[in-house]
Amino acid sequence: MEKKERRAFLKSGLAAGAITLATISSCTGPNISEEEEELVNVLTPDGRLVQIPKSMAAADSYVPVGPKEARIGIPNKKFVMVVDLSRCTNERKCIDACDHHHHLTPDRPYIKVLRMQDNEDSSPYWMPKKCFQCDNPPCVKVCPVSATYKRSDGIVLIDNERCIGCRFCMSACPYSARVFNWGQPPESMEEGYDEIPYSPETSVPSRIGTVGKCDFCPDMLRQDKVPHCITACPNGALYFGDKLSDTVTNGGETVRLSQLLREKAGYRYLEELGTEPNVYYLPPVNRAVPFEETLSDQES
């Protein structure tokens, strides 16, 4: 059997510019004798595509890591997000995409889009709010059992198999980023939901009596893909990237982080608290579309 190892870049059909590694593909032809098994491309943990017999490949291409491996960050990365407030028009597509991939019901989303107005005379604006993945995280400091922890790549995750449900982290978070499963999570009504193997990197499945929050989708990052909310935004308001390589992308456009923050006067929300968030905001100036009141219940 011929075993090819190739590192490969595939341009996904329509997502311009975005590079995706991967997808199962098979490679059979008339010139290959019939005894030989069909080969499939799979992605190795270090990001290479290798072809292995189909029988050896898992049914789906990627299996999220378990609670133990999830404590170790993706090596040599420092993830950041930039939110361009001038582009957000409260379309709520990021919330939908996040809810969909985290199996959340609309009543307890991880992402909120808030209507903000800094003072009476200034214009209101929409502020998408995720977990800020602080570098000095108040929530992690107070956790009595290390159920929530900060990784080397800057991401703050929750192990809901460790969480004791004391909710100290919720009190400690100045950004109200955390949600609690007060009862049986409504999504657990979904068929097969409880059989999904738990991974802190996907935050699925949620468990009663434990805390949840935006996780920056490390399962996607491990596959060299950006989080779901980034690609879902129709306005390209959300940028995501690696601070060490000074690059962020909104799915279409890829720019230097330092340049973006410098040119558009990027800031971090409540910098004075010293939490050192990894989410930056670009002020809501020079908007393409003027602010429009959208009723919050229009989302569905």
Binding site: K4, R6, A8, L10, S12, G13, A22, T23, I24, S25, S26, C27, T28, G29, P30, N31, N41, Q51
Partner: peptide, 24 residues
């Protein structure tokens, strides 16, 4: 034709697939 056959794929959840061009 079978002479020009390169291979086949099944599309994934996004309706996409890639074929690595074979030695032929």
């Amino acid at each position: 034709s079978s002479a020009g056959y390169l291979g086949s794929i099944m599309t994934d959840r996004e309706g996409q697939g890639s074929l690595l061009l074979p030695l032929s």
